[in-house]
Nucleic acid binder design. Structure first.
Lengths: 216, 216
DNA sequence: CGGCCCGTGGCAGGAAGCTGCCACTTGCGC
DNA sequence: GCGCAAGTGGCAGCTTCCTGCCACGGGCCG
């Protein structure tokens, strides 16, 4: 377990670790303040793209802070586009945490003091402990798209009726009769609803609707 | 930072820390397996009571596992009764974590291997990092009473996999292949899931699952 | 060993859901 | 009137999903 001061020293002493990702890259932080310089960030994105191509899982956990500035949003969309899993967490994450292959962990001190401190460790017990916590936070967080979709799909009164019928577990036939439309039309409506919820199956649509609180 | 093996050694080398709690005692774990012997547990409860009387904040975070056996339930109610804050977290916490006054941290290895390993550290950066994660999980968790009030279906790890496949909008065929079971078995599982969610249709099950936050 | 329970998987037949096609109505503007 | 667009409903054929039935392969117990 070592301590370093400043990004420069971190890069010097642990930078090589970023090039040797084997299977998993995990990162949790408030925002993108660490790799503040655009070219650094671009380099990171590029390397990440290469890793993803090799089958590495990349998970990034940020708070809404990361979405406030345009650069941050852009970066997140970018990494999400190349296949990284991005989630947004409601609680603050002042200590940026990076875990590589569950073998090395980098823990940053909060907020960029002039020379930010970093703790680098490879202790399995520490890493596993932190990872299980990270996993717990991860589970409790929203995927980027879900977070952004919050209250996005516009659902009108008619669609809401369909939604409610579906949520009650009615068969299409029953629901159609209740709504006073033909089976064909009802199903058309359901299909439209699935489309507006961007879902491939009724279950998925239900899940989305439930997450978004549309069923209550 | 030191490593110890077995509860006995932990008590010998770090036991004194439990007596010197100044302001905060934080504990997160799957269940009560650590202090498995009843008299130990009673002693812990007693000391905790004393601490609480002195104005110490005690926060305990457990998973539903801790509530499965009668002894665990009892212990949790007991500590909650004397003023400890108890919350229940949906994600597993295999590495028991104890933090005292944000100055000392004990990280346990998972599951009682014969001689369970413990990592004890007083590194501020590590502790603060872990604490911010713990706080994040804490925030996302339900207080014990809230948790108990909500009657949610018990979903095990296998069912959760099914749930996730469904929530992704996969067809049964794809999902079955991914989970490595036959189509028949997969559908059996889905049917079981619908039953445990008391749903008549997949949409309804999705909606329930979404509402209960089971899809993340 | 035989008998039993349980979980699994294949199969088949049926139910439910999906959608393209077309015909019909309604409403609007020319 | 005609033409056009949009919404509806019936039909058909397809896919997906549901489930009862039976066979097979462990474990477990007497």
């Amino acid at each position: 377990m070592i301590r370093v001061r400043g990004e420069a020293e971190l890069v010097a002493r642990a930078g090589h670790l970023f090039g040797t990702v084997g299977s998993e890259f995990l990162c949790a932080a408030n925002d993108m303040s660490t790799w503040s310089r655009p070219n650094d960030r671009a380099a990171v994105a590029q390397r990440m793209g290469a890793s993803l191509a090799e089958g590495v899982t990349v998970r990034k956990l940020y708070t809404p802070t990361a979405l406030t500035d345009e650069a941050g949003r852009h970066h997140l969309f970018e990494v999400a586009a190349v296949g990284a899993l991005v989630r947004v967490c409601a609680s603050p994450l002042p200590h940026e945490t990076i875990v590589i292959d569950r073998r090395v962990m980098i823990l940053a001190d909060p907020v960029p003091t002039r020379d930010r401190g970093f703790t680098v460790t490879s202790s399995p017990s520490l890493i596993e402990g932190v990872c299980s916590l990270l996993d717990a936070v991860w589970q409790a967080s929203d995927p980027l798209d879900v977070y952004l979709r919050r209250d996005r799909p516009r659902i009108d009164a008619d669609q809401r009726k369909i939604l409610r019928a579906l949520a009650e577990g009615l068969t299409d036939e029953t629901a159609a009769r209740r709504l006073g439309v033909s089976l064909r039309t009802y199903r058309r409506r359901v299909a439209e609803l699935l489309a507006s919820l961007e879902s491939a199956s009724r279950f998925q649509a239900g899940a989305r609707a439930g997450e978004l609180g549309l069923t209550r």
